[in-house]
Each structure stands twice: as C-alpha cells, then as structure tokens.
Amino acid sequence: MNTSASTSLSTTAAPPSKVCADCQVYRAARLKKLGVAVDKWDYIVALAGNPNTGKSTVFNALTGLRQHTGNWPGKTVTRAEGGFEYAGRRFKLVDLPGTYSLLSTSVDEQVARDFILFGRPDVTVIVVDATRLERNLNLALQVLEITDRAVVCVNLIDEARRHGVQVDDRQLARDLGVPAVPTSARHGEGLPALLEAVSEVASGRLICRPHRLAAEPPAIRDAVRELRARIQAAYPHLPNVRWLALRLLGGDEHIAEALRRGEFAGLETESRLEAADASDAQPQLTVP
C-alpha cells in the first residue's frame, strides 16, 4: 500500500516544510529530489538495514517521497524505488525490506539478498541504528561479506546522544573498511556527508576494503577452506568467495541454482579487489 499511495502522490510532493528549509540538505543545494521520476540513472543505490532503523526516513529524505514510517519493526514490506540527483549524477535508490539477517530463508531476506548480490548496486547503504549498534552490525557484516561497495549510515544519532551513547564513526569506518556516516535522517542531519560518501564510492573515487569475518568458526574451518579453494579455481575474480562457500555449505539451493545458471560468472570484478577477500587482510579505507 505504501508504494501505491506514495507513488500516486509523489508528483505533488510538498515543498520543503519549515523544518527542513534551513537544514543542511537544502543548503548543500547539490541535491535534487527526483521522487519516482527515475528513468535514466547513472548509479543504483540499495538501502539495506534492520527493521525500524529509520531506513524509510533516509529514503524519504533523499528522494522527497513519503513512504510511511513508524516506530515498529517491519513497516516496509515491498521494495520501493525512488531517485535523486547529486553533483550532476542521477541515482536510483532502492529501499529493500528491513531484515535482521540475510542468512535465513524468509521471502524478505531473499529479496534483499538477491538485490545486493545480483542487482549489482553501485553502492549499498547499510542503515544501522546508533542506539543498537551491536545487533545492527550483524546485518551490516553480512552485507559486507557479499559486496565491497558499501556505506554505513549510522542513523538515529540524535537518539543515541539522548541516550548518552557516543559512536566513534572514524573507528567504525576503520574497522568496517567502508565509510561510516553519522546521520539523523529525521532532522536532515548528516545527509550531505552521506551523499558525498555514496557518490565517492559509486564513482570509484573511494575504494572500500570491507571487513570480512576474522576467522571461520573452528567447526567449519576445514570445509570452508577446501570449498574456497575450489571456488577460487573456478571463478578467480569473485569478490565474495567465502560467503559463497558458506552458502553452499549451508545447502542454499537458491544460490546453487544461480551458480548453475552461470550468474556468478557475471559477478567477477576486476583485480582491484582480489586481495580484499583474504581473511587475514586488514580492512582499510583508501582515500586517494
């Protein structure tokens, strides 16, 4: 329902209300909200995150659409799309269903995972709740296992402050190997920095070296090692070999089927990321 209602009304999207007229997004003046009018785009941006982290608020703030948001886990069920223009480039933004994980087999999780994997977004923005960082990092780390072009949006930073919690975004960015931007989407705070980071990663000016699990759990280490070697032999340039090995060990037929159809061959990237998958490699952020 959200999509249909907001779609039909998006063209009449209200002029910036008073609250937002003086916020940084507008002062930045490089952002043009496109609503649903995205037919041609330069980059695709996926928006992933736990339920109830303000993902839809970020989506609305960037596109000018009005997806309903609420303080409830699980408001956005369908995939919503919108667009914005920033620094002369057109971005298509896809709001994925909010999930706790990408490992289980529920429909929501499959939709989200398939888009990050096969939709080949230029950037995946992972919205995490600053007040519940640990739980939210569960999903963030799973996303980083799949893709190496990501930006972590540490949302609800105002709530975190109210709760007496401080998040060191530079430390977080170092540990995760991708940009981490503190935001408060409801107040438009931090969005210029988020846009900048998204555009840097999308254009390839910023190369991420995402965090990969430090070590496999001992019980599965040998099995993973053997399978990784085999996958690497078949697909030398795949950016997410270990993740694929884990999925196959988990008996994920969906992924096996994709493998049979040859979809993974298309996911191989240039050599720039080969090293990133080595589990002993330190994650780091390279800013040229």
Binding site: L133, E134, R135, L137, N138, A140, L141, V165, Q166, V167, D168, D169, Q171, L172, D175, L176, H211, L213, A214
Partner: peptide
C-alpha cells in the same frame, strides 16, 4: 565480530 567492533566504536 559485531560485538568487538561495536565495543570499540561505542562509548
């Protein structure tokens, strides 16, 4: 890993 990272980032 999440706990370790969150621990370092959150004060």
């Amino acid at each position: 890993d999440a706990a370790r990272i969150a621990d370092r980032a959150v004060t």
